[in-house]
């Protein structure tokens, strides 16, 4: 039953996306910024593609909304903030840097540093031990 419902849902999505909304391109400069921004934003309907690549109707609406914001003089940060305020951090593929994501952003570099240190210490210790024996 769940499966059938899922099929129906996708049907609705497919057909409704075929119907009305279309992208309304703005100036070339706006389009370049839109492109850059929307490749870093998640389409919430088909959650695995970016806003840039999605054909979903909501994605088109949001692209048009972003065009309006850019044409209205908003900065990139303000556009992202506009969307985050409505849909949450989930909407951006670039996680914000804050206390919750410090481990995410800096963890790998700390790990690389520790890894290199451990390797050097181990190699040194090893050659000291092996060097002692003939």
């Amino acid at each position: 039953m769940m499966k059938l419902r899922y099929v129906l849902l996708t049907l609705v999505v497919t057909f409704s996306s075929l119907s009305v909304a279309t992208d309304k391109p703005s100036t070339a400069a706006t389009e370049v910024r839109l492109k850059r921004l929307s490749t870093e934003l998640r389409c919430l309907v088909c959650q695995n593609s970016t806003l840039a690549d999605s054909d979903a109707e909501l994605a088109q609406d949001l692209r048009n909304e972003i065009r309006t914001l850019i044409d209205g003089g908003k900065t990139d940060e303000e556009v992202v903030a506009f969307l985050v305020a409505r849909y949450g951090d989930f909407v951006t593929f670039r996680p914000p840097v804050n206390a919750n994501t410090a481990l995410l952003w800096f963890g790998p570099f700390i790990m690389l540093f520790i890894g290199a240190l451990v390797l050097i210490l181990m190699l040194k210790k090893r050659s000291a031990v092996l060097g002692a024996e003939p």
Binding site: L44, V45, E57, D61, L62, E65, R86, Y87, G88
Partner: peptide, 13 residues
């Protein structure tokens, strides 16, 4: 009609 209110309310489905 145009989904503008929906965007303000964070509607995605």
């Amino acid at each position: 009609q145009d989904g503008r209110i929906g965007i303000d309310y964070g509607v995605y489905g």
